[in-house]
Amino acid sequence: MSQRELVVLGTASQVPTRHRNHNGYLLRWDGEGLLFDPGEGTQRQMLLAGASATGITRIAVSHFHGDHCLGLPGVVQRINLDRVPHPVDAYYPASGQVFFERLRHASAYHPTAEIREHPIAGSGPLPAPGAPFALEAVRLSHPVESFGYRLTEPDGLRLRPERLRELGLRGPAVGVLQREGRVEVDGRTVTVEQVGEVRPGQRFAFVMDTRLCDGVAELAEGADLLVIESTFLDQDAALAEEHGHLTAAQAARVAAAAGVRRLVLTHFSQRYPDLAGHLAEAARHFDGEIVVAEDLARVPVPPRR
């Protein structure tokens, strides 16, 4: 059975707390495992969450501030230690190439796995060999170059059982129709369009360190699951703008305008020991489902529309 869920490995911003590890988010999408922003301690958080290095197929780093990338050395070395048999694709801002190389080769280890580097120079589609989805990066606004990521599943086609019955299609004929798009039945041709309906593909968006900009809205548009930083509350909006971050209210307003189905708030400043304010602030602007992320929580992708 396919599995689509977000495993939250850490929810802190620059400074971790007793209850919040540095960032780390593992998106399980059918047979894929996309690890976003592995901050310090990610390898151990994966152990606590029951996630293995073998399940990682892609790593995506939004930017090279330490709370989003200092766990990369341990993750890379664990991938090699476990002799992960498949290639792992790594995405990151091209302007941070020197940082990626330092992190990837932070200490001595025996390389056994293939890690394919995909430095990002600007917004646009990303190479995603073998993936059942399209992956793209969108530039954000932060003191250092930062990109958000969006995963888009192509629309599919669902066969309508009542139409199959009406047209006398059953058994092997249905299989032919699915494979070839058409089938001959009783001297007539039936096409898949006659018995099917569009099944919208699902979307996931990851928006990390940024102030409000066009890229935030672009990433969030139509997302079934939006993971978005909400470092501050509106009372500290000036700080958010100065340091290139969002408030919970800003994140919620973006989600509402974009038609998001499930909103996940994360990346919380240590100045807020209690996150009830984030939930209350977001709820004033977004009437969909809101998840205030907690370390080691699992957040399912909503069922198809």
Rank of each mutant, 00 (worst) to 15 (best):
H118C: 02
A51W: 01
A94M: 02
V98K: 11
R83W: 03
A108L: 14
V75A: 07
V61D: 07
L47E: 09
P87D: 02
A121M: 12
H63D: 14
D67Q: 12
A113I: 00
P85D: 15
F99Y: 14
T57W: 01
L103T: 04
P93K: 00
Y109G: 00
V84E: 06
P129L: 05
L72Q: 02
I79C: 10
A53F: 10
Y109M: 04
T54R: 15
P127I: 05
L47Q: 13
G66D: 14
A49C: 00
P87V: 04
G96H: 11
Q45Y: 03
S62M: 06
I115T: 07
E114I: 05
A106W: 08
G122Q: 15
I56L: 13
L70C: 04
H118I: 03
I115G: 01
P125W: 05
P129G: 01
F64Q: 03
Y92D: 02
P111D: 07
D67P: 08
P129N: 08
T54K: 15
T112W: 07
A113R: 02
L70H: 13
A108V: 13
H63Y: 06
P129S: 05
A94R: 11
R44V: 02
R104T: 11
L81Q: 15
R83H: 13
D67Y: 10
R102W: 11
P73H: 11
V61W: 11
H110R: 12
A90K: 01
P87M: 01
A51S: 12
D89T: 05
A108H: 13
S123M: 05
V76F: 15
L47D: 03
G55P: 05
A113T: 14
R104F: 14
H65F: 07
D82C: 10
G124A: 10
A60Y: 07
A108R: 12
G130F: 08
E117K: 07
E117I: 00
A106E: 07
V84A: 15
R104S: 14
G122F: 08
L47S: 04
Q97L: 12
E114G: 03
V75S: 08
H63R: 09
H110G: 02
I79F: 09
P93N: 00
P111F: 04
R104E: 13
A113Y: 01
G130H: 06
L103I: 03
Q97T: 14
R44E: 14
G122R: 15
A51M: 04
P73L: 09
I59Y: 07
G74M: 06
P119F: 07
R102G: 08
A49Q: 00
R102S: 13
G66K: 11
P129H: 06
R83C: 08
T57G: 12
V76I: 13
A94H: 08
C69A: 12
L103Q: 10
A51T: 00
P119A: 05
F100W: 15
A51D: 00
H118K: 04
T112K: 05
E117M: 06
R44M: 08
E114V: 10
P73C: 08
E114W: 09
A90N: 02
